[in-house]
Amino acid sequence: MTPLWYVVGFGVAGVSFVFLTIGAAWLISHRTRGDQHKGLPYESGIDTYGDTHGRFGLSFYIYALLFVAFDIEVIFIYLWAIAFQDLLLGGFISMLIFVAILLLGLAYAWRKGVLNWR
C-alpha cells in the first residue's frame, strides 16, 4: 500500500467516523419544530436586518494574497533546505536573492500600510 492510498483510506475512515457519530447523535437527540423565531440567526437577540453576506473588510483579501505569495515559496524553500548540505555557498546566495525578491513585496505592503489592521 503506497502512502497516498494510506492517506486516502485514512480520510475515508475519518469521514465515516464523523458521519457515524453525527448520525448516532441525530438518532438519540431530541428535536422540536419550534416557531419561526427558532430558525433566526442569533445576533444578540434582535431580529436580523440587512444583508448577511454583505460587505466586509478588504484587509482579509490582502492578507490572503500575501499568504499565497509566501506559502508557495515555502514548498521551494523546504526542498532547498533538504538539499542544503550539498549546495552550501551557491545555494545560500541564490536563496538570499530569492527571498530578497519576496521581501520586496512584503516591504511594499508594509510601506503601503496594509499590515496595519483597520
Binding site: P41, E43, T48, T52, H53, F56, G57, S59, F60, Y63
Partner: peptide, 17 residues
C-alpha cells in the same frame, strides 16, 4: 447565515493563514 459567524470565520481564516 449570521453576521457574527461570517466575521468570526473570516477572522479565524486571517489569523490562521
Amino acid at each position: 447565515f449570521n453576521k457574527y459567524s461570517l466575521l468570526g470565520g473570516l477572522r479565524s481564516a486571517a489569523q490562521v493563514i
